[in-house]
Structure formats: C-alpha cells, structure tokens
Simulated scan of single mutants.
Amino acid sequence: MAWFKREKKGIITSTEEKKETPDGMWNKCPSCKKPLHYAEQVENKYVCHYCGYHLRIGSKEYFEILFDNNKFTELFANIRSGDPLNFTDTKKYTERLEESYAKTGLNDAIRAATGTLGEQELVIACMDFNFIGGSMGSVVGEKIARSIDYSIEHKIPFLMISKSGGARMMEAAFSLMQMAKTSAKLALLSKAKIPYISLLTDPTTGGVTASYAMLGDINISEPGALIGFAGPRVIKETIKKDLPKGFQTSEFVLEHGFLDFIVDRRQMKAKLTSFLKMVK
C-alpha cells in the first residue's frame, strides 16, 4: 500500500511527533480580525495592540490588572444560588448551575475581594460574563450588599465592575429584588461618605444598568462598551426607527451625560489611583 504514502525524506511525520498549539495561545481580535498572541494580550492588558479593541475579560484578569502585585483577599467566596422557584425551561436551573460551576470554576457571576490599588485600600466586586451571561441573581445581589457592608465597616472605597446581560430570568422576582437591595445599600455607603466607583464594561445592560451600575459617585467605562437597558435590536423594533450611529456605545453614553469619562484599560489603574488619592 506504499502508493498511499510519500516516501521522500522530511515529508512523513508520525502522529506522535506532531506538536499541537496549546489552547488559547493564539486568538483573533473580534474587531480587526488580526491574530493575537496570548502573552502579548496579557502584557497589553487584554487590549488589541493593532486597533485598541478591549477584549472581554473576567474577574481573574481584572484583579490581576488592578490589585497591587495581584495580592488580594477574596470575600464571601463560597455563596451559591439555590433554586427557590424550582425553575425548568429547556433544562432545570440546578443543572444549568452545575454546568456553569464545572465550565467556569466560579460559584456565580461575581467575585469580591479586598486589597490595595496604588497602595490605597479598596474593595472590588467584579462580574463574570462567562457565568450564565453575567446575569444578576440572588448571589450577585448578596455579594454586592455584603461587599458594601464590608466597605462601610472598614471605611474603604468600593469599586463595582459591571459586565452583565441583566437580571437572571431563572430567579424571576428574586432577581429583580436585587436592584432595590443593592441601591439601598449604596445609599448607606453614600451616607457614610465612602466613595463608590462604578466601572461599566462590555456589555452592561438590563437591570444592572437600571440599578447599581449607574449609581457611582463617578461612573466610568472602557472604550466601545455596550451600555443600555434593552438591546439595540429590541429598541429598533419597538420604536420602528433606525438608531443613531454608535448608539449605546460608551462614547454615545458619555456624549449624552451618563458617564463621567472613558478610560483605556491600560491606564485604568493609574486613573483609579489618582482618584482614590483625591478622595482619601
């Protein structure tokens, strides 16, 4: 059966000798479509060095970028959702949760931690979009509430990093209640005169936008982030009109007065350090 093989030297390579490229070593920029090497992404704070597109990242990466020397103490790490409504759609909510635990290694769509940023003490609560679309359920609301209580108790500024598709439908009214719960806690934080910084990243939508994401003493965002309540498609179908160019981007939201400023992720730590020193 020799005619099925090339016999020239250097052509035949056994399966055992082939070296596969490690997963995640390379990927493609969603904006300019150019290949990005993982090590370069880390060095450039997960921003495309060709076009400046800010790649979606989670709490692990934000903590690495913001906390000094990536040193922090995680807060309330072991809280997990229940299934108070015994919700079933295409599959049981409990099954969806188990799949998300296994896939992401997270306990829910948010992590909270305390540490220093530019040598200033800070509590950070950061959402993870990979966990059921960063949806806001009871655990998200509870962790934010407890993080705010921790900030008040220790008189430490609070930073909320939002990245969410909105309320978690599997928890229905329990999810919607988190809007009022977190907003009430932020009112207590304000009364205690402790700074609250809200960082909106791509995407920040739904009930998250309608509550804690827009209640910061300063509201900031990364470039090009999608920010809004309903999605552009839903709005267009509702009003039966074409939407303005750049509608619901962070630049559009800034122009219409709902953001204080936009910060490139590569300058984020320096900007936040400067702000924390001013309000110290």
Rank of each mutant, 00 (worst) to 15 (best):
A2G: 02
F4L: 14
F4G: 08
K5V: 08
R6Y: 07
E7V: 10
G10C: 08
G10I: 06
S14R: 07
E16H: 12
E16G: 14
E17V: 15
K19D: 02
E20V: 08
T21G: 13
D23T: 15
M25R: 14
C29W: 02
K33E: 07
K34A: 10
L36C: 13
A39I: 15
E40K: 13
Q41F: 09
Q41K: 14
V42E: 13
V47P: 04
C48F: 02
C48V: 05
G52R: 05
H54L: 07
L55G: 15
L55Q: 14
R56V: 11
R56C: 14
G58W: 00
S59K: 08
K60Q: 15
E64S: 15
E64T: 09
D68I: 02
N69V: 04
N69I: 01
N70E: 03
K71G: 03
F72N: 12
E74G: 10
A77L: 05
I79H: 05
N86F: 11
N86Y: 11
N86S: 12
F87Y: 15
D89H: 03
D89P: 00
K91G: 03
E95D: 14
R96S: 15
R96F: 12
K103L: 12
T104N: 14
A112T: 12
G115N: 00
G118F: 02
Q120K: 12
Q120E: 11
N130Y: 01
F131I: 00
G134S: 08
S135D: 13
S138P: 13
E142S: 13
R146G: 01
D149P: 09
S151N: 05
K155P: 03
K155T: 01
I156S: 12
L159W: 02
I161Q: 06
M170C: 14
E171Q: 09
A172N: 13
A173V: 14
A173N: 11
S175L: 08
L176M: 05
Q178P: 11
K181N: 14
S183V: 09
L189T: 04
L189K: 07
A192Q: 08
P203V: 10
T205F: 03
V208F: 01
M214F: 09
L215S: 10
L215T: 00
I218N: 09
E222G: 13
G228M: 06
G228L: 07
K241D: 07
P244G: 07
G246Q: 03
F247D: 06
F247S: 06
E251I: 07
F261I: 13
V263F: 10
D264C: 04
R265T: 02
R265M: 00
R266W: 09
A270I: 14
A270S: 13
T273E: 02
F275H: 14
V279R: 10
